[in-house]
């Protein structure tokens, strides 16, 4: 991991010094453990704080939208797919980007770590190979990374960037024996009443802070539907129906676009698994339209095309 940090700093310095890019976008260590933050660097001298480890779960594509300069940017699998999506949606041009690819071993679920140390305060985390050491005031515990991956990373099928100008490491073998939709299949087996209960419980703690929306690179609308009035499509209260409407429409807006990067879930202050909405759409677009988001910047997305023989069984 640390080897990537060095390489990233080196690459950023080189690209900025050679004026190949105006800005370099990566991560820096957060002010608290496990919370790496995005960092935009515009001068080689400032590149030393760039950092990479298994806590880089925020999606950097958020910082690309509608920029006009030349940008160097780090991309693992999902971030690169969001770049492709941004290119498809004309939010950025391919030739503005210099993509520095990193084969991704998956991000660690910070909530799982907190649970594992029983909510004691974590002061520092040191990553060593396939393990990491969690240090607190009067404890020190070692865990295996593999067992603490974010749920989206555990079933990720695109760990290598699909788009890059330079790779900082050898591509990893892609996981092929995973079922990305196991959780969705479980919900699909429930009857309507159970499903209603499941989703009402799932979102019952939501405080409508919209962090899930703000952390998602797909959400770049100048006016989001939640802020629209006349007509007001969704009430602003935390009435369960309003909250459900919010989550439903946010997910629907990500149909055919979501890369399951997990940023939305990572940032939720209430620990809500709102990917249970988006993943259903990912599953359906894959099954009905053979589409996974962001694999090819040249291909039109599924709701922008059609086939005369599309799935029609549900129509009378």
């Amino acid at each position: 991991m640390l080897k990537y940090t060095e390489k990233i700093v080196e690459t950023a310095k080189r690209l900025l010094a050679e004026e190949k890019v105006d800005v370099f976008i990566g991560y820096q260590k957060g002010t608290v453990p496990m919370m790496n933050e995005p960092l935009l660097v515009n001068h080689p001298d400032k590149a030393d704080t760039l950092y990479w480890d298994n806590f880089c779960g925020l999606n950097l594509c958020n910082y690309l939208t509608k920029r006009t300069d030349k940008i160097g940017i780090i991309a693992n699998g999902c971030n690169s797919r969001n770049m492709a999506t941004h290119i498809i949606e004309n939010q950025i041009k391919r030739d503005q980007l210099y993509i520095v690819g990193i084969p991704c071993e998956g991000m660690i679920d910070h909530r799982a770590v907190v649970r594992a140390v029983k909510n004691r305060e974590i002061l520092n985390i040191v990553q060593e190979g396939s393990t990491f050491v969690v240090k607190g005031k009067d404890f020190e515990e070692t865990f295996e990374k593999q067992k603490f991956l974010q749920s989206n990373c555990a079933v990720c099928r695109h760990r290598n960037p699909v788009l890059y100008d330079e790779m900082l490491g050898d591509p990893l073998e892609e996981q092929t024996d995973v079922n990305p939709y196991g959780d969705i299949e479980k919900i699909e087996e429930m009857d309507s009443e159970k499903k209603q209960g499941f989703f009402q419980r799932l979102i019952s703690r939501c405080i409508r802070c919209y962090a899930c929306r703000n952390s998602c690179p797909l959400c770049y609308c100048p006016t989001c539907f939640v802020d629209e009035s006349e007509p007001q499509w969704v009430g602003k209260s935390i009435d369960p129906t309003d909250t459900l409407t919010f989550h439903f429409l946010r997910a629907y807006h990500c149909a055919g676009r979501c890369t399951d990067c997990g940023a939305c879930e990572r940032v939720c202050p209430m620990g809500i698994s709102m990917r249970q909405f988006t993943k259903k759409l990912n599953k359906d677009t894959e099954e009905l339209f053979s589409w996974e988001a962001g694999l090819d910047p040249e291909k039109r997305p599924p709701l922008d095309v059609y086939r005369p023989d599309d799935y029609n069984d549900f129509i009378k």
């Binding site: 919900i187 499903k195 149909a255 259903k280 759409l281 009905l288 549900f314």
Partner: peptide, 9 residues
């Protein structure tokens, strides 16, 4: 997709 997601929830 709409029908799928509505019935999903």
């Amino acid at each position: 997709l709409l029908k799928g997601l509505l019935e999903h929830i």
